[in-house]
Amino acid sequence: MNHCEGDHCVTCSDEAVRVTVVRLLGDDLAETDVGGGRTEEVSVALVDVSVGDVILVHAKEAIGVVS
């Protein structure tokens, strides 16, 4: 069974990126701090997140919350 472990997605060999949730936008979207003073909108439909959470994002989809 393929699944994601840590920062690496074995299903497609790409790495997930750690970002911080700065604002929940509704419609299962969140604005995230991607570093360097930049933000990016990502889907959080698959995870339960709050502002301030660090999440793993792959292909603009949150795939996990970093504990």
Rank of each mutant, 00 (worst) to 15 (best):
V66E: 05
H3Q: 11
A45V: 05
H8F: 14
L46Q: 12
E15G: 15
D14Y: 04
A59C: 14
T32S: 04
H3K: 15
R23Q: 15
I55H: 01
V22M: 06
L29T: 07
L46I: 00
L46R: 10
A45E: 14
I55M: 03
N2C: 00
A62C: 15
C4K: 10
D7W: 06
G36E: 09
K60D: 13
T32M: 07
E31P: 03
L24M: 07
D27T: 06
T32Q: 05
T11L: 10
V65T: 11
E41M: 07
S67Q: 13
V65F: 05
V10C: 01
V10K: 04
A30S: 09
E5N: 08
V10G: 04
C12W: 05
G64I: 01
V17Y: 12
R18E: 12
L46G: 05
V57P: 07
V42T: 10
A16Y: 01
D53G: 08
C9R: 12
G6S: 06
V47C: 13
E61R: 15
H8Y: 14
L25R: 07
V66H: 09
V54P: 00
D7N: 14
E61G: 02
R23K: 15
G52L: 09
E15T: 02
V47L: 02
E40H: 06
D14N: 12
D28K: 12
L56N: 10
T20S: 09
G52F: 13
T20Q: 14
A30W: 03
D14H: 04
L25T: 04
A45S: 13
L29D: 15
D27F: 08
S50R: 14
H8M: 14
C9E: 07
T20I: 09
L24H: 04
L56Y: 15
L56D: 02
R23D: 14
V22H: 02
E41S: 14
S67H: 11
E5V: 10
L56H: 12
D27C: 02
E41W: 00
V42M: 07
L24A: 03
I55S: 00
T39S: 14
R38V: 08
L24C: 06
A45R: 15
G64F: 03
A59E: 14
D33H: 01
L25W: 02
C12V: 11
H58S: 13
L46C: 02
E41N: 10
H58Y: 04
L56E: 06
A62D: 06
I55P: 00
A16I: 03
V66N: 01
N2M: 10
N2A: 09
V66Q: 03
